[in-house]
Nucleic acid binder design. Structure first.
Lengths: 203, 203
DNA sequence: GTCTATAACTGGATAGAC
DNA sequence: GTCTATCCAGTTATAGAC
């Protein structure tokens, strides 16, 4: 709130405007990378959406790679980091279902994630490390949640928390992909609910 | 075996050689599309791998799009169409685990599938219909298998065959993606086995 | 900060010689 | 069948005027 935070202080010099500009660029890039992927999405198309020249865009993000990383981190910053591990008021099952339902309203975000994640498995992709870290972090978060449940005797006997964590994430990603191809045939929340009810015992 | 099947009759005229040439091109394109995706994979790189010029390549596949479709159908023709629904000798669980283990030895094929599948969710992608059809066919196959099990009382009560079919495919695709990023941390066969054992009752 | 101009490539596809 | 030559549209990135 102090003067040292120009981005939060109204229209103060060039900083606030610059931060605004960066945000609109990231939003436009989000749409372009979702529709075309990183390699085939062009800076020109991003610039067109923002209404500036391609060279002006490079004033804010000096390379295409930096723009991608800005899009990825921004995506996580607005929708959590992907881990749905909430306040103790809500059960894990409810939180996952709620997030899955919410995701149905933001197909563009799902598409970006699906497209960039798969593209990142290829060599030399600038998003590769981002997704490696993300998956590792997510697996640990869910595994910890499942281990706490196991200690309380709420996990079905025989279920391995580590494998279950990887499986939950895999199921979620995979069902999102199928949903993008056939939204009317796929019940994302239903599949996730079914799985969690299978591995978690009723209280 | 007759003269009407030139591709099977040794070196008979230009046909056999042409079919051979097409096969090597498809193999090379497989590698290029797996490493770079369809849009960013170039015909030049495919041509380089085969050892011919880019224009000569277009003699066999007049457009890049046709080459992609040849790669996709060829991929399914050698590894089944993806549905692991086997002879009655083997259980579904065993067949899935066996295929998952086999897949660990062909990361290039998994990578191609993962990259092209996600790229195909974007608009105007020539592979889009292929994957829509593939998922629909797979869901029906597995749903039928689960319904037969349900009739025999071998499916856990409450498990919906349709959703379980979509979930199994989703889990499989998702765990393959995580495995590509971190092969040492992910037990593909283990996750699939765990899931099938959850929904299928022991005999 | 924003632009034009341009460098330096690479893309898929066509024409036509051989 | 295979090539060279070519077309033309596209790419990221830089230089430098304003």
């Amino acid at each position: 709130m102090k003067a040292t935070e120009p981005s939060q202080a109204g229209r103060r010099g060039p900083y606030a405007k610059s931060a605004d500009r960066r945000r609109t660029i990231v939003t436009a890039a989000h749409a372009v990378f979702a529709a075309r992927g990183y390699r085939s999405g062009s800076l020109q198309e991003v610039a067109d959406r923002v209404g500036m020249s391609q060279t002006s865009l490079l004033h804010y993000f000096p390379t295409k790679r930096e723009l991608l990383l800005a899009v990825l981190t921004w995506r996580d910053s607005i929708s959590g980091d992907g881990a749905v591990l909430p306040d103790p008021e809500e059960s894990l099952v409810d939180a996952v279902i709620r997030q899955a339902r919410f995701n149905e309203d933001i197909p563009g975000v799902i598409e970006l994630y699906t497209v960039l994640c798969a593209e990142s498995v290829t060599d030399d992709h600038p998003g590769r490390q981002f997704f490696i870290d993300r998956f590792a972090r997510l697996r640990i978060s869910y595994a910890e949640a499942f281990m706490r449940m196991a200690q309380e005797g709420r996990l079905r006997p025989g279920v391995d928390p580590q494998r279950a964590a990887a499986s939950l994430i895999a199921l979620w990603d995979g069902i999102q992909t199928q949903w993008l191809f056939a939204p009317d045939s796929i019940d994302m929340a239903g599949s996730l609910r079914d799985y969690l009810r299978l591995i978690i015992l009723p209280e």
